[in-house]
Write a protein that binds this DNA or RNA. Sequence first.
DNA 1: CAGGAACCTTGATGTAGATCAACCCAGATG
DNA 2: CATCTGGGTTGATCTACATCAAGGTTCCTG
Lengths: 242, 242
Amino acid sequence: MTFVFNERDGCGKCPIRHRAICARCDADELVRLEGLKSYKTIEAGQTIIWRGDDLSHFSSLVSGIASLSRTLEDGRTQMVGLLLPSDFIGRPGRDVVEFDVTAVTDVTLCRFDRKPFEQLVDEIPHVSQRMMEMALDELDAARDWMVLLGRKTAREKIATFLEMIVRRDQTPVHSGGQHVLPLTREEIANFLGLTLETVSRQLSVMKKDGIVAFSDRRHFAITDLEALHAATGDDADGGMII
Amino acid sequence: MTFVFNERDGCGKCPIRHRAICARCDADELVRLEGLKSYKTIEAGQTIIWRGDDLSHFSSLVSGIASLSRTLEDGRTQMVGLLLPSDFIGRPGRDVVEFDVTAVTDVTLCRFDRKPFEQLVDEIPHVSQRMMEMALDELDAARDWMVLLGRKTAREKIATFLEMIVRRDQTPVHSGGQHVLPLTREEIANFLGLTLETVSRQLSVMKKDGIVAFSDRRHFAITDLEALHAATGDDADGGMII
DNA sequence: CAGGAACCTTGATGTAGATCAACCCAGATG
DNA sequence: CATCTGGGTTGATCTACATCAAGGTTCCTG
């Protein structure tokens, strides 16, 4: 399966040098992989890996956004994760992907071969510790999302989604409170277990309620953060990890 | 957060000796924790840990079934995982639980203190490797469940649930194809993101369809496995990991 | 063995969100 | 500049599931 990890405090450059892989490893240890890396770019909309494909190498997202999803035979699709820069595709121990990985925007990957990577995991204990922690964080996030999918109303789903986008937005100086909405209405729907019409309607309602303001289809600002949070259905402290 | 791992090939005794913790560690390494373990039993229905509680020790399920769930302020609750014997409660690196852990049946735990366990993870590389792999398996399972919660119909949810119960049933000789249903209708509903009435109705429909037969409220047999699978909405190969 | 209590089933009705459909708008393309 | 295309909005209608409600079982307890 695809394993995704999150490390937003990296340098933004090639993740081989990232704290993502190991905050405690010294340079020597990480240099081992340098020679094996290669870059690849994928256009928005293209599928990076299909469910069931062989996982010949590991990749780390350098730039762009990708999604992890599954589509049932009749076309219903559910997104199960969003990959942001420094997230990771591939997992040690399994050689087949369980979900489709698709480029949401143009994407650059830094790839390296499986074998040497697995060896790294095997030989450098910090790496598997780090990956364990990250897998556990992802697991928490997935379970939070299960609560959303199973029990939240359309409005709560949208509010939770917007709050998540805002929380994850790393835009240095949040330019006038403006945030980018990286997904189409349909993609949001597939993320939230809704239809695109419901997403559109609920966003309209929240505009009328004075919670969000769209300057354009892809850019919004939160005009009432309190109200947004109240609309999520979560309690004060509770928060997703991702 | 609570981390759960699955190792069905253990000895069924105290998990300290389990392959669950480390298949590759030698006896000496594992013996270190032996002195620290203590047992605790919890009655069915009791909460083992509340969300937000301090995680003073790690536990491993010796017998019984527990659930992992979250309840929203207004009472809606969503189960996010089922813990079976040899599953694990607690995770290195975080000291607070993100979900409620509740005993579904009477439960016996084998507990040991956090600090020594974290040290074990730190010092014995196989352990964190093993835990990473298990966390990744859980992650796959959680994502499969997200597809169910977000996109499947009530009937598909029930069918998937029954299929999962059957797959996980370790009963040595599946006594006449009989399986135990360990959850009440309400618990099933909370697992599947439904109401208990819908669960009851869909089970009735599947009885009429000749897919399941209940000998009693808690015991059933699958009378048409083909049809059961067809009703799950999954494709032929696709399967949950758990 | 009588009386609860917890659990389950089934029916009637309500409703959130899906589905179907028409139209709008912005950016690409010739 | 016209037109086309891929989103996006908004309305009308439908439906799967929730909600409300009334029994029915099973099992526990005195």
